[in-house]
Amino acid sequence: MSLTMTVSPDFSPDHISDWYIFNTCLQRRLDTGIHLELYSGFDEQRKAIANDEIDLIYANPFDAAMLVREKGFSAVARPGGKADEAIVAVSEDSDINDVEELSPGITVVSAEDPEVHLMGMIMLEPADLTRDNIELKQVQNYVLVAKELFRGQADVGFFLAEAYQDLSRMVRSRLRPLIESQISVIHHSLLVGPRLAGRREEIQQRLVEMSEDEKGRGVLDTLGFDAWEPIEQEDTEFMIDLMDTLGA
């Protein structure tokens, strides 16, 4: 059986080679061939999911909720010491210093990342901004979000905090964060599809063991993780409940 793994397209391009190294490591530990397929955008990845082409996925919680509910996936592990946070930023020369100074009619630029978009929109709520009274521009990635801001094509932009930190120093110097979320309870997770349901426990054990040896720790370190922490059914249910409340 040929297996395919993919990673949520919100990861930093700097980590492409790290995910290939992780996949090689995982294949050895599971003694199973796994093909890593990386998609440049969410649309492309969603098509592959819809066509049941994916067996393992490192997904943001928004997609994870959909995968569990609609595609029979099961969450196995999440990265320790790593939570998903979002940043709302403006161009360095913007007159805006506080979210509450923003007014209806502004242009918001967002990457095609549903989780970060959700967190970003929540952070605009104190200014009475909703999807109904902003202009939304969606672009492919966070570098383009930054460009839209410093070209004056948008008033505020949403970033995954990790992706913001991964922008080059020069790009960051032309931006200014207005607010950063401190949610702490939202995480990406690694999920297995129905074809791997019978190996869920084994995969979880191999992932958790990774931080117990030097080689595994090295692989995790390049991805910015301390370890894989096991996820139980109730953790997944809670995450889905949480995403439901945030989308409300």
Binding site: V99, M123, P126, I179, E180, S181, Q182, I183, L242, L246
Partner: peptide, 11 residues
């Protein structure tokens, strides 16, 4: 004041 960027979560 409610702190910026935070979520209060309880069950």
């Amino acid at each position: 004041p409610y702190p910026d960027g935070k979520l209060i979560v309880s069950r």
